[in-house]
């Protein structure tokens, strides 16, 4: 598949959404609602569960599986209160020393009047800021769409794993094409140039793993085997991350983001100068 075919594939009905992963991989999930500030965002599901017998906090961006669910979930476009709910639950995970698993599938943050009034930018910024220093392991699974800051707000993690057909991009290919070419129909070209596919991103050092997808998500046997394998791998990774010293975990996380696109080397930093 070329880049844009992958993008389209993540938007097809029948593909597993965040809720499917939560149901299949985790046991005893209890959903928690609300950001305790303004409201509850149905585009973001959060709560606690166990994974392989160990407590975890799970956050998922859910876009819904049919038209009525799409509408109810605002098409997986998260509002400020959704990001704030996520942060509230991440801080709770930190308090109780349980790792966080984020499942990301979004065409972007909610683009609306209320979202701006309530500080969409500030909400995303605060997540990036706090996640970089969250004193507990974080693993992000990019399972479908991953557009811009709205996806990044749940992707400051110790590791990011991406499905082989998922995409993660600075700007949607359609928006990129309409800015560059004044023609959103040229999205396929833009998608190639943006280097948004899992294989591109692992080469750039942005993600850690590419996960093979089942050929058919709607085949129950294939999907079950896929979910069980993924569950075991996630459990194994969380076990390894839990074994790290906290200082090492946090400095490794910082450095992972710090080193990408590094061009102002410390050597170029001037010595302090008396004024």
């Amino acid at each position: 598949m070329n880049a844009y075919e992958k993008v389209k594939c993540t938007r097809e009905a029948g593909r597993a959404t965040a809720k499917d992963y939560i149901d299949a991989m985790f046991d005893g999930f209890v959903e928690f609602h609300g950001d305790r500030r303004f409201g509850d965002d149905p585009a973001l599901i959060g709560g606690v569960a166990t994974l392989d017998g160990k407590p975890v906090t799970v956050l998922g961006i859910e876009k819904g599986r049919d038209v009525s669910e799409h509408v109810a979930r605002n098409f997986g476009c998260v509002s400020p209160e959704g990001y704030r709910k996520a942060l509230r639950l991440m801080k709770q995970a930190e308090k109780f020393s349980r790792p966080v698993v984020c499942i990301v599938d979004t065409q972007g943050a909610n683009c609306g009047i209320g979202a701006e009034e309530r500080g969409e930018g500030a909400a995303i910024a605060e997540n990036l800021y706090e996640m970089m220093d969250l004193h507990t392991p974080v693993l992000t699974l990019m399972v479908g769409e991953g557009s811009s800051g709205g996806a990044l707000a749940l992707a400051v993690a110790d590791e990011i794993w991406m499905l082989e057909n998922a995409y993660f991009t600075v700007v949607s290919p359609e928006a990129c094409a309409s800015i560059l070419y004044k023609d959103s129909a040229r999205a396929p070209e833009a998608a190639e140039h943006l280097k948004l596919a899992a294989q591109d991103l692992i080469e750039m050092g942005i993600i850690e793993r590419v996960i093979a997808e089942p050929r058919d998500f709607t085949d129950p046997a294939q999907c079950k085997a896929y979910m069980e394998k993924l569950r075991d791998e996630v459990a194994g990774k969380l076990h390894a991350l839990r074994g790290k010293k906290m200082n090492t975990l946090l400095s490794d996380r910082y450095e992972k983001y710090r080193k990408i696109g590094r061009c102002a080397p410390e050597g170029a930093m001037p010595a302090p100068k008396k004024h």
Binding site: A125, L128, Y129, L152, V170, I260, G261
Partner: peptide, 14 residues
């Protein structure tokens, strides 16, 4: 600069 740009948001916030 694709995802390398998006990454700067996280890097600077950190």
């Amino acid at each position: 600069e694709g995802m390398l740009s998006l990454w700067q948001m996280a890097k600077v916030s950190g």
